[in-house]
Design a binder for these strands. Sequence first.
DNA 1: GACAATACGGAGACAGTCTCCGTTTAGCAA
DNA 2: TTGCTAAACGGAGACTGTCTCCGTATTGTC
Lengths: 183, 183
Amino acid sequence: MRADALRNRTRIIDTAREVFREQGYDASLDEIAKRAGVGAGTLYRHFPTRDALLDAIMQTWVDRVEEAAEKALAFEGPPRELLLGWFDVYVGLISLHRGGPAKITSALGDPDSPIRTKCEVLTGAFERVMQRLRDADALREGVDTVQAARLVGGVATVADDGGLDAAAVRPLLVVVADGLLRA
Amino acid sequence: MRADALRNRTRIIDTAREVFREQGYDASLDEIAKRAGVGAGTLYRHFPTRDALLDAIMQTWVDRVEEAAEKALAFEGPPRELLLGWFDVYVGLISLHRGGPAKITSALGDPDSPIRTKCEVLTGAFERVMQRLRDADALREGVDTVQAARLVGGVATVADDGGLDAAAVRPLLVVVADGLLRA
DNA sequence: GACAATACGGAGACAGTCTCCGTTTAGCAA
DNA sequence: TTGCTAAACGGAGACTGTCTCCGTATTGTC
């Protein structure tokens, strides 16, 4: 890749991250191009669709998921707390930008999603946490990872759309956790 | 209201219902106007915002919620089945048009929402069902109606966004129900 | 039948998406 | 260094959707 192309690419990604954080995932792409100091054509050449740009942005913080999962796995304490702690982190991560929860959760389990690889990292991390609980025989029968991720993603989506704060989200996650854990 | 105004109003509502059903809540309003055989100005005069139009459309089927709640209340059987049956109906109702679950669920508990009155009908029905279970001492402590509606709405939203069918939705609702019901 | 009051409708201003293509630049080879 | 070519740039403009403005038409009343 030519040096100028690479330079523009990173500029676009950085700017997009900033703009998406400020305005959510439906921000104007032309504005992102303008702020990044490139023409619209350049943006669209690098990222033919909005989702392609999204995918590039997610790269950075998908890495954080791994750490968070490790931390959850190392947690010594009751399963309910472990699960709730993980849910909190997960919701925080997918809610970094407005529109994120819906985008990500709807892509779970979709093999054709443009952000598939990123979602696989997420479900991978989720799976490890769930497996840890399964090993401890803490989960009900027939509970599977994608279902759990969808439930938590649903909570995050509702919170995102409705502007709920952490205090309003907590009880919802508690219900989901109680529904997943062995009674 | 003048006769021609009323005629146009109903034409617009009927057309909008049709178009929204076909294309979801983000369909073009100009197309609705065109299909209804009126000018864009006429549509916007009757319904200044997309939400105002939505509100008018919801009227018809909000009525169905009442019946459905009555039916649920009359149900003789285990609380878990009652709750799941109600969830199914509720999800079906708010999912009539694409985009509906997110729209409606994010409006729950928002006193400034343009579809507030419709949401109140929904939560009212939801509340009666929940109260019935509370009377039977079937619910966990501290479970409240809006929380339950948000959870079910979250499931419906995820299903709507991700194109999940009833078979994929069922287990999610089961988890929510188990989380709400006394262990 | 005339005259307000009310309602209509579509042209057009505006904003966002996305493409096309003439211009510029990086990188390499002589 | 210079010259060359493939690669990349960028912005004008076509297109779509939102929403307003205002000249025109219709309704219902006296």
